Amino acid sequence: MQETFYRPDSEVLRSTRTLPAAIYNLAHTLLVQSQTGCVFVPIRTMQYMAVLDAAEFIFVDRERPGLIELAWQSFHPGSRTALEDPVSFDLVYYDERAALTMQRLIAEFYKALVLLSERRVTGSPPAKILSFSRKH
Protein backbone atom coordinates (compact mmCIF):
# COMPACT_ATOMS: atom_id res chain seq x y z
CA MET A 1 0.00 0.00 0.00
CA GLN A 2 1.31 3.43 -0.92
CA GLU A 3 0.40 6.68 0.82
CA THR A 4 0.86 10.13 -0.64
CA PHE A 5 1.50 13.23 1.44
CA TYR A 6 1.56 16.84 0.31
CA ARG A 7 3.97 19.47 1.54
CA PRO A 8 2.66 23.05 1.36
CA ASP A 9 4.65 25.37 -0.90
CA SER A 10 5.87 27.63 1.87
CA GLU A 11 7.04 27.25 5.44
CA VAL A 12 5.42 29.27 8.22
CA LEU A 13 8.40 28.88 10.55
CA ARG A 14 11.67 26.95 10.80
CA SER A 15 13.65 26.65 14.01
CA THR A 16 16.27 24.40 15.59
CA ARG A 17 15.17 22.19 18.47
CA THR A 18 16.42 19.18 20.36
CA LEU A 19 14.71 15.83 20.64
CA PRO A 20 15.17 13.73 23.78
CA ALA A 21 17.45 10.77 23.15
CA ALA A 22 14.81 8.23 24.22
CA ILE A 23 12.47 9.40 21.45
CA TYR A 24 15.15 9.60 18.76
CA ASN A 25 16.66 6.23 19.66
CA LEU A 26 13.31 4.42 19.78
CA ALA A 27 12.15 5.95 16.50
CA HIS A 28 15.34 4.87 14.75
CA THR A 29 15.16 1.40 16.27
CA LEU A 30 11.70 1.03 14.72
CA LEU A 31 13.02 2.36 11.41
CA VAL A 32 15.82 -0.19 11.34
CA GLN A 33 13.29 -2.97 11.95
CA SER A 34 11.03 -1.72 9.14
CA GLN A 35 11.12 -3.65 5.90
CA THR A 36 9.91 -0.65 3.90
CA GLY A 37 12.20 2.07 5.26
CA CYS A 38 9.34 3.97 6.81
CA VAL A 39 7.17 3.63 9.89
CA PHE A 40 3.60 4.82 10.40
CA VAL A 41 2.95 5.83 14.00
CA PRO A 42 -0.66 6.56 14.92
CA ILE A 43 -0.90 9.15 17.68
CA ARG A 44 -4.44 8.31 18.69
CA THR A 45 -4.67 10.74 21.61
CA MET A 46 -4.20 13.63 19.18
CA GLN A 47 -5.75 12.05 16.06
CA TYR A 48 -2.48 12.48 14.17
CA MET A 49 -0.30 10.21 12.11
CA ALA A 50 3.48 10.40 12.19
CA VAL A 51 5.38 9.02 9.23
CA LEU A 52 9.05 8.33 9.86
CA ASP A 53 11.80 7.78 7.35
CA ALA A 54 15.56 8.22 7.48
CA ALA A 55 15.40 11.87 6.37
CA GLU A 56 12.50 13.27 8.38
CA PHE A 57 9.45 12.69 10.55
CA ILE A 58 6.24 14.24 9.22
CA PHE A 59 3.00 14.78 11.10
CA VAL A 60 -0.46 14.76 9.54
CA ASP A 61 -3.76 15.69 11.16
CA ARG A 62 -6.64 13.22 10.70
CA GLU A 63 -8.86 16.18 9.84
CA ARG A 64 -6.64 17.01 6.86
CA PRO A 65 -5.31 13.66 5.63
CA GLY A 66 -2.34 13.78 3.32
CA LEU A 67 -1.41 17.38 4.17
CA ILE A 68 1.80 17.75 6.17
CA GLU A 69 1.28 20.14 9.09
CA LEU A 70 4.81 19.99 10.46
CA ALA A 71 8.05 18.10 9.99
CA TRP A 72 11.17 17.29 11.96
CA GLN A 73 14.14 17.36 9.59
CA SER A 74 17.94 17.43 9.46
CA PHE A 75 18.67 15.34 12.52
CA HIS A 76 22.25 15.62 13.82
CA PRO A 77 22.91 12.49 15.91
CA GLY A 78 26.63 12.67 15.12
CA SER A 79 27.01 15.78 17.25
CA ARG A 80 26.15 13.82 20.41
CA THR A 81 28.87 12.68 22.76
CA ALA A 82 26.69 9.91 24.25
CA LEU A 83 23.59 7.97 23.19
CA GLU A 84 21.69 9.56 26.08
CA ASP A 85 22.25 13.09 24.72
CA PRO A 86 19.43 14.88 22.89
CA VAL A 87 19.58 15.20 19.10
CA SER A 88 19.22 18.55 17.38
CA PHE A 89 16.88 18.88 14.41
CA ASP A 90 15.01 21.45 12.34
CA LEU A 91 11.37 21.94 13.22
CA VAL A 92 9.37 23.10 10.20
CA TYR A 93 5.83 24.46 10.51
CA TYR A 94 3.70 24.40 7.37
CA ASP A 95 0.55 25.61 9.12
CA GLU A 96 -0.24 28.21 11.79
CA ARG A 97 -1.79 25.49 13.98
CA ALA A 98 1.51 23.61 14.17
CA ALA A 99 2.74 25.67 17.13
CA LEU A 100 -0.26 24.54 19.16
CA THR A 101 0.22 20.95 17.99
CA MET A 102 3.86 20.96 19.10
CA GLN A 103 2.85 21.74 22.69
CA ARG A 104 1.62 18.16 23.11
CA LEU A 105 3.36 16.37 20.29
CA ILE A 106 6.66 15.31 21.84
CA ALA A 107 5.05 13.64 24.87
CA GLU A 108 2.23 12.00 22.90
CA PHE A 109 4.56 10.91 20.10
CA TYR A 110 6.81 9.16 22.60
CA LYS A 111 3.85 7.30 24.14
CA ALA A 112 2.75 6.22 20.66
CA LEU A 113 6.27 5.02 19.82
CA VAL A 114 6.43 2.96 23.01
CA LEU A 115 3.04 1.41 22.28
CA LEU A 116 4.04 0.57 18.71
CA SER A 117 7.34 -0.89 19.89
CA GLU A 118 5.60 -3.08 22.48
CA ARG A 119 3.16 -4.36 19.87
CA ARG A 120 5.97 -5.24 17.48
CA VAL A 121 7.86 -7.13 20.19
CA THR A 122 4.94 -9.08 21.54
CA GLY A 123 3.00 -9.36 18.29
CA SER A 124 -0.67 -10.02 18.23
CA PRO A 125 -2.14 -12.15 20.95
CA PRO A 126 -2.71 -15.73 19.87
CA ALA A 127 -6.17 -16.52 18.59
CA LYS A 128 -8.42 -18.72 20.66
CA ILE A 129 -10.88 -21.03 19.01
CA LEU A 130 -13.82 -21.82 21.18
CA SER A 131 -16.10 -24.70 20.54
CA PHE A 132 -19.72 -24.20 21.29
CA SER A 133 -21.65 -27.31 22.00
CA ARG A 134 -25.16 -27.38 20.71
CA LYS A 135 -27.87 -28.02 23.16
CA HIS A 136 -30.40 -30.49 21.81
Results as ranks from 00 to 15, higher is better:
Q2I: 13
E3K: 14
E3S: 13
E3L: 14
T4L: 02
T4W: 01
F5H: 15
Y6T: 15
R7Q: 14
R7F: 14
P8D: 11
P8H: 11
S10W: 04
V12S: 09
L13Y: 12
R14S: 06
S15Q: 04
T16E: 14
T18W: 04
P20Y: 08
P20G: 10
A21W: 09
A21C: 10
A22H: 01
I23M: 12
Y24C: 03
L26C: 03
T29F: 10
L30A: 04
L30Q: 14
L31I: 12
S34V: 00
S34G: 03
T36R: 10
G37N: 09
C38S: 15
V39A: 06
V39Q: 12
I43D: 05
I43W: 11
I43Q: 07
R44H: 05
T45K: 13
T45V: 06
T45Q: 15
T45D: 15
M46I: 01
Q47W: 01
A50W: 07
A50E: 11
A50Q: 08
V51L: 10
V51H: 11
D53Q: 12
A55M: 05
A55V: 00
E56V: 11
F59A: 04
V60Y: 01
V60H: 05
V60M: 06
V60S: 02
D61H: 05
R62E: 14
R64F: 10
G66R: 06
L67H: 10
E69F: 13
E69Q: 14
L70P: 02
W72Q: 01
Q73Y: 03
Q73G: 04
S74W: 03
H76Q: 04
P77T: 11
P77Q: 05
S79M: 05
R80G: 03
R80D: 01
R80K: 07
T81Y: 04
T81A: 07
T81V: 11
L83T: 07
E84T: 15
D85H: 14
D85G: 04
D85E: 12
V87E: 05
V87Q: 04
S88T: 15
S88Q: 12
S88M: 10
F89Q: 06
D90L: 13
D90I: 05
V92G: 03
Y93L: 12
Y94E: 12
E96D: 12
E96P: 01
A98E: 08
A98L: 03
L100S: 02
L100F: 06
T101H: 02
T101A: 01
M102E: 08
M102R: 04
M102I: 00
R104P: 00
R104K: 09
L105V: 04
L105F: 06
L105C: 06
A107K: 14
A107D: 12
E108V: 06
E108S: 03
E108I: 00
F109E: 04
Y110R: 06
Y110H: 14
Y110M: 02
K111Y: 05
K111G: 00
L113Y: 13
L113H: 12
V114W: 00
S117M: 05
S117Q: 07
E118A: 12
R119D: 10
R119H: 13
R120V: 05
R120G: 08
R120K: 09
G123N: 04
G123R: 01
P125Y: 07
A127F: 02
K128V: 15
L130Y: 10
L130S: 15
S131N: 13
S131H: 09
F132Q: 10
F132S: 07
S133N: 08
R134E: 13
